[in-house]
Design a protein around this nucleic acid. Structure first.
Length: 600
RNA sequence: GGGGACGUAGUUCAGCCGGCUAGAACGCUGCCCUGUCACGGCAGAGGUCGCGGGUUCGAGUCCCGUCGUCCCCGCCA
């Protein structure tokens, strides 16, 4: 039943044919999307990556082609030779709907089992099935379009950076473990038993060394690895646009990225306003309760602490109180208010205190405690209008070094923005966040840790605070984040290029000279041989493309993603390895799990 | 590590307070059909109700455990 391709040459993609092609002899190749058998006539919808085209097989005119079409089933791979005809009854739902192919020859190049789900965007298969048969899933137009979009975005990024004089340089995938930060993926060495490579969490040190090497401008579209639990926006291996420049002002890095983003966004027809907005970290927290604020809507936080001061003990709240104005929510039902209280709690608030501003006046259960005048003042201070609901929150618990109440209010702001439909889907708000603290307090480790990584530069006037334990939380870094629509797309910094400053940071982090040498010795050595001022950034390609594609999960823009249990359902990785392989690596398993009755 | 949702034909799902000989749609198989395009018509096949245990006269349904997928918290410099 199978035919060979022979000398047959494809002339067009199925999806490209138009009325202007009528009269042409063409050869198409693709998958049988659907077959409609009317007896004398068989219609085949032939599909390839460009789209779908209808093929007609007529028993009277071309009996052999018809006989082949009779054998064909969905997802068979076929070649069709024929002539393009203008259709008498066009199909407006199809890009190629104005034409059809009268088949003179049909060749069956391969058969196919009945697929577990139909290759059709409108047919929902659950993600587990889709991932197990990812090759079939990717035949569908939406997943295909996402992967194609990713290609175009990455290609534009490469073109933009090439135009700006960047070299694309590959850095090692087998490297060394860096105990700071996320858990490493380790690869055992066969040659050196007991020693391990680590897969890079980022090429951070290598790209800085490339600056020391005089490469001046480096970039890489690079896979990075972190052995941490997964989320909709987190995979164990993910792709970054990593770049680094020598002798840059912060402004130069911003301009570079803004140009790159401008070209990338143009792929989906979005024109970005340059330059991007800037916001200081402390202002982002104070005004939006987030270090990655979504600026597609307003609803800024109002500091209402002083109004709530008389109730501090009664309510037993700690820290500050922030108020949000939910416009039009004064009319919310009891159930909606209950939901709001629930959401406030899950956002980290102790409770949600509400004040209704209506034509009849200002009403709230807070009146007893705060007094009617205070309510009026709050309404005035927040600018609430009639019909609005003021929601005030305090933090559930204190978090050292951060304003927990602001963060809770920020979370609530996002949910309210969504509920009140304030977020327009086609808006794009990019901004830079700067002025981050260099250190943050780690409650689990009970010490100061780098907010970003230990090579982040320091604002000069704060250098003196490095040695002052009490002021460590006040040291500002030269780091910056790129935020778009409330999503952190990337972060970077001007780096430390002086070894004396680097040594002081390690000391402030509580790393002894010895430990620092042990972990970063080769890098510290390199720093001493004439390191230029340098800085850079890394952007998450998966998140970027997911946003552009309108997808919630980055799995939708990764060809072969892993599940939340870090498995590849198609390739069935990770997998056990043979005893001989382990033996070669000098590895002995501690205990081998007995396969369960239900096991794979 | 913790919390939540889900798991029933190939697929997506329904199955109420325990009575099921487990249904629907799509898909699949065979036959018919010259203008279909989610073709249509007729006939048919297809199930370890994720897995294990328990309660019960009786379990898809209730209970316990377990496995898997997804979402969230922790974690992710």
């Amino acid at each position: 039943m199978f035919d060979s391709l022979g000398e047959l040459k494809r002339t067009h993609y199925c999806g490209e044919l138009r009325v202007a092609d009528a009269g042409r002899n063409v050869v198409l190749m693709g998958w049988v999307h659907r077959r409609r058998d009317l007896g004398q006539l068989i219609f085949l919808d032939l599909r390839d990556r460009a789209g779908i085209c209808q093929v007609v097989c007529n028993r009277d005119q071309y009996p052999e082609a018809h006989a082949k079409a009779d054998e064909v089933r969905p997802e068979y791979v076929v070649a069709v030779e024929g002539r393009v005809f203008r259709r008498q009854k066009p199909n407006p739902d199809l890009a190629t709907g104005g034409v059809e192919i009268m088949a003179t020859k049909v060749r069956i190049l391969n058969n196919a089992k009945t697929p577990p789900f139909q290759i059709e965007d409108s047919v929902n298969a659950n993600e587990e099935t889709r991932l197990r048969y990812r090759y079939l899933d990717l035949r569908r137009s939406k997943p295909h379009a996402n992967i194609a979009l990713r290609h175009r975005v990455v290609f534009e990024i490469r073109k933009a950076l090439d135009a700006l004089g960047f070299y694309e340089i590959e850095t090692p995938v087998l490297s060394r473990a860096t105990p700071e930060g996320a858990r490493d993926y380790l690869v055992p060495s066969r040659v050196h038993h007991g020693q391990f490579y680590a897969l890079p969490q980022s090429p951070q040190i290598f790209k800085q060394i490339l600056m020391i090497s005089g490469m001046d401008r480096y970039f890489q579209i690079v896979h990075c690895f972190r052995d941490e639990d997964l989320r909709a926006d987190r995979q164990p291996e993910f792709t970054q646009l990593d770049l680094e420049m020598s002798f840059p002002r912060q402004q130069d890095i911003f301009e570079t990225i803004e140009r790159v983003m401008e070209r990338a966004m143009a792929v989906v027809g979005v024109t970005l306003k340059r330059p991007f907005r800037h916001l200081l970290y402390k202002d982002a927290i104070r005004r939006y309760g987030s270090d990655k604020p979504d600026l597609r809507f307003g609803m800024e936080l109002h500091d209402a602490t002083k109004f709530f001061e008389p109730a501090r003990e009664t309510f037993g709240f700690i820290g500050n109180v922030y108020a949000l104005v939910a416009s039009g929510a004064a009319a919310w039902s009891r159930k909606q208010l209950d939901d709001l209280a629930e959401q406030a709690k899950s956002a980290g608030a102790k409770a949600a205190y509400t004040i209704k501003v209506t034509a009849e006046g200002i009403t709230s259960s807070l009146e007893k405690t705060l007094g009617a005048d205070a309510l009026k003042e709050i309404a005035k201070a927040t600018g609430a209008k009639k019909g609005d609901l003021i929601v005030a929150v305090a933090a559930k618990e204190e978090i050292r070094g951060t304003d927990a109440a602001a963060l809770a209010a920020g979370q609530l702001r996002l949910r309210l923005g969504e509920q009140l439909n304030l977020i327009s889907k086609d808006k794009w708000e990019f901004l830079w966040i700067t002025g981050f603290p260099l250190f943050e307090w780690s409650a689990t480790e009970n010490r100061w840790v780098s907010a970003q990584h230990p090579f982040t530069g320091i604002i000069e006037e704060d250098l003196d605070k490095l040695e002052d334990e009490g002021k460590r939380g006040e040291v500002r870094s030269k780091g910056y984040d790129l935020v778009a629509n409330g999503v952190e797309l990337g972060s970077g910094s001007i780096r430390i290029h002086r070894q004396d400053v680097q040594a002081r940071v390690f000391k402030a982090l509580g790393l002894s000279d010895e430990t620092a040498r042990q972990r970063f010795g080769f890098f510290l050595d390199a720093l001493t041989y004439g390191t230029p001022p340098h800085g850079g950034i890394a952007l998450g390609i998966d998140r970027m493309v997911a946003m552009m594609a309108g997808e919630k999960s980055i799995r939708e823009v990764i060809a072969f993603p892993k599940t939340t249990a870090a498995q590849d359902l198609m390739a069935e990785s990770p997998s056990e390895v043979g005893a001989d392989q382990l033996d070669e690596l000098g590895i002995e398993l501690k205990s081998k799990e007995k396969p369960t009755a239900t096991g794979a």
